[in-house]
Design a protein around this nucleic acid. Structure first.
Lengths: 196, 196
DNA sequence: ACCTGAACACCGTTCAAGT
DNA sequence: ACCTGAACACCGTTCAAGT
């Protein structure tokens, strides 16, 4: 199953078409969940014909894959900056900054992010941006290796993201979207998890 | 959308039909994911006609809902026992026991459990067993309220499950299914998260 | 009480025809 | 280069007919 975009839009009109398709897909995923994400509904809400959709996306999953890559890309941008800043900070402050960055990203559109995270594990998306996010976190942790519970830094970087996402998600589900409070709780959990 | 079973099988033959349907649904969800869960595929693999399936389940989602309730039911059984035992233990040991119970349950069929957890949030399942699991954890935490970061014990009980599930899941995804090691890491994270 | 499978509406995807 | 919508295979669900 290929997920790559089938063809790049070159004319501005076509770029607008692709934007409208992706915006419609994101909206449907966010409001109604993956079950309601039908190619017909996406095309209708985007105001284009079903044929146009298939000119740029080879199948339905490619829509989700494209949204995943966009989301990872924007997270990468902010995490790379945060990683740079964290380099000059004490462990505690740097961790807090990285966590804040991930929490804010997820709070931007929590329902959409949760769906994308789940779908991303079932689809063979080759998500370079997500890997680079992991690298930034790993570098930060390596810088403070001495404080940490040794063993597997790669796994630790992975778990930093898992825990941040799941605690944010659980918090949103309870109706609490206060970024500062979530950040505080996540950092508390991560300190216990990472440090010896 | 109704998710309740449409009709209870009374004759042994019919009970076998329902069992075969649910076993087929679980197998497909586990091996191929929710996209491949089609009512036709379930009926075919269960060796019954599509009509029989709809005699007991009002729609496709009801299959998933039934699997969720079975899973929660079996978790409830073991968590209730663990909660009883934990009552006489020190905080650290009791927490470890509860965590172990949840980790073991999830490691039993990790792929299936992950799917069910996600689907459970999108479906209006009225999961009494899951609520009772939460109550057991909450009672345990309340017993040690003095040690904890005050505020919201209900949220804390919720987060105990979120963190346990997400760390177990992340670990399995990396290929590490060692229950003891996972338990150790989860308890470390939870101690930092819960205790002041 | 339980089972069956043809029938119908709808969804994913293609393709020939257009500008 | 881009757009359109009829067409086809398949899936969810029903229902009349059976044991």
């Amino acid at each position: 199953m290929a997920l790559a975009a089938r063809k790049m839009p070159v004319q501005p009109r076509a770029q607008a078409t692709v934007e409208a398709i992706l915006a419609a897909a994101a909206g449907i995923l966010e409001r109604e969940g993956p079950t309601r994400l039908t190619t017909n509904a996406v095309a209708a809400q985007a105001g284009v014909s079903i044929g146009s959709l298939y000119q740029y996306f080879p199948n339905k999953q490619a829509l989700t894959a494209a949204l995943i890559e966009r989301s990872s890309g924007s997270l990468e941008t902010s995490v790379v900056q945060a990683g740079r800043d964290a380099k000059t900070m004490l462990f505690e402050a740097g961790l807090r900054l990285l966590v804040r960055t991930i929490v804010r990203h997820q709070l931007d559109r929590p329902g959409l992010e949760r769906t994308l995270a789940y779908e991303g594990r079932r689809l063979p998306v080759d998500d370079g941006a997500a890997r680079r996010v992991n690298v930034v976190i790993r570098s930060f942790l390596e810088q403070h290796r001495g404080r940490l519970w040794g063993s597997d830094i790669n796994a630790a970087a992975d778990d930093v993201q898992s825990m941040t996402r799941s605690l944010t998600d659980a918090s949103v589900r309870r109706g609490d979207r206060n970024a500062d409070l979530i950040e505080l709780r996540v950092v508390r959990a991560l300190r216990g998890y990472l440090c010896r």
